[in-house]
Computed example of a mutant assay.
Amino acid sequence: MLDSLPTPDASATLRPDVPVDVRLTLGVLQRGHADPTVQSRPEGVWLCFRVPGTGDPVTMLIRPAPSALVPGPVPVLAWGPGAQAAVDGAHRLLGLDDDWSAFDARLASDGAGGLPPAVVRARRAHPGLRLPATGRMVDQLFMVVLEQKVTHDQARAGWRWLVRSHGDPAPAPAPAGMLLPPTARVVRHVPSWQWHAGWVQPAQSRALLRVAERATALERLGARGADEVDQVVGALTTLPGIGAWTAAETVQRTHGAADTVAVGDYHLAHHVGEALSGRRTDDAGMLRLLSPWAGHRQRVVRLIGLAGYRFSRFGPKLAPADHRRR
């Protein structure tokens, strides 16, 4: 595959001084195996997007380092009008501004700070885990809004439908089936009947339209630094249809927000409670359990997800809602 690729319009080989697990780090950006915008393939991770601010399209390939356990070179290749800007931002995309040193020092110095052994082992097994920062606020909001109060399968199907129905071809040599997400302008003009046909709930389509209408201001929020995450969350939650959960899930990916936890999630509080205390809890209980790790709470949540817990399942399953005949 790599031998047949055309010469990239821009490229670089990053040489971080910390381990970087490219697939694990970027995996949170991929919405299912059939995501048209992000694909993990044998040659590396492909991403198709538009550069914030300019809207220039780009296809990017990030090849993993030889090892995810020790520092190593990470080749980055990009094609399209946005290639150079994408390569310039690759360090942030890969979470190289995400500094785990204080977290790791605490694990080493005070008996893991009360974290369960499985969580500590997860960190030792995955030293290359970073929190990516895309800066692409509108794209992420489109994705996360489609995940509001629906099943996992509905959320993935909604994103695929939106991109395949209203996205654009990505610059060559994007793999077959990969596309650029739709622009805000296109989303603003999606007819109401098409939202119904795509199984997008009315509250979701209204929120998507609000995001699209405010795209310019939202992209400015995406350009703000990780030290301004609280202000970004506050600004996002003033937008009707964007609550605390949606804002948190968004900034975790746009800003690599290491301390922003998604409250209001259908399962997360239960999982954190079981992992840290042995029993299920609610959002308030989850925040209490995570409070000793202020500054690193989302890092702890990510590690819980990698720790191999088998969480109990109670209560009714969330059923898909069909609004197409309403």
Score class of each variant (00 low, 15 high):
Ala197His: 15
Leu287Gln: 15
Val272Lys: 06
Leu146Lys: 00
Gly198Asp: 06
Asp282Lys: 10
Thr151Gln: 06
Leu218Lys: 09
Pro8Ser: 05
Asp21Cys: 00
Arg23Glu: 00
Ala86Gly: 07
Ser312Lys: 15
Gly198Val: 05
Glu147Phe: 02
Ala258Met: 09
Arg206Trp: 13
Pro202His: 12
Ser205Asp: 05
Asp265Leu: 05
Gly95Ser: 11
Leu306Met: 11
Lys317His: 13
Asp98Pro: 01
Ala86Ile: 01
Pro52Asn: 06
Leu289Ser: 10
Gln148Cys: 05
Asp9Thr: 05
Ala217Tyr: 03
Gly55Phe: 08
Pro75Trp: 01
Gln204Cys: 02
Arg310Lys: 15
His189Glu: 14
Asp98Tyr: 02
Arg324Pro: 00
Pro42Lys: 14
Ala170Asn: 05
Pro169Val: 11
Glu274Pro: 02
Pro16Thr: 01
Phe49Asp: 08
Thr59Val: 04
Leu2Gly: 02
Gly198Glu: 06
Asp322Val: 08
Glu249His: 13
Thr216Val: 12
Arg224Pro: 09
Val138Trp: 07
Ser205Leu: 03
Leu146Tyr: 00
Gly241Leu: 02
Arg188Phe: 03
Gln194Pro: 02
His189Lys: 11
Ser165Gly: 15
Leu180Met: 03
Leu94Val: 00
Arg124Lys: 14
Glu228Leu: 12
Ala157Val: 03
Arg214Thr: 05
Leu239Ile: 14
Ala78Pro: 07
Leu287Pro: 06
Thr250Ser: 11
His189Asn: 13
Trp199Asp: 15
Leu69Gly: 08
Ala307Phe: 14
Ala215Glu: 09
Gln194Cys: 03
Ala284Phe: 01
Arg313Phe: 02
Asp35His: 08
Ala12Val: 01
Arg253Asp: 09
Thr238Ala: 15
Asp97Glu: 15
Asp99Glu: 07
Val70Leu: 12
Arg31Leu: 14
Gln231Ile: 03
Pro42Ile: 09
His255Thr: 07
Tyr266Ser: 04
Ala217Arg: 09
Thr281Ala: 10
Pro132Asp: 11
His296Cys: 05
Ala108Ile: 03
Gly315Thr: 14
Leu218Ile: 02
Ala12Ile: 01
Glu274Phe: 06
Arg224Tyr: 07
Arg324Gln: 07
Met286Thr: 04
Asp282Cys: 10
Gly241Asn: 10
Gly273Pro: 09
Thr254Arg: 10
Ser109Tyr: 01
Leu276Ser: 09
Ala34Met: 11
Leu47Met: 05
Arg15Trp: 01
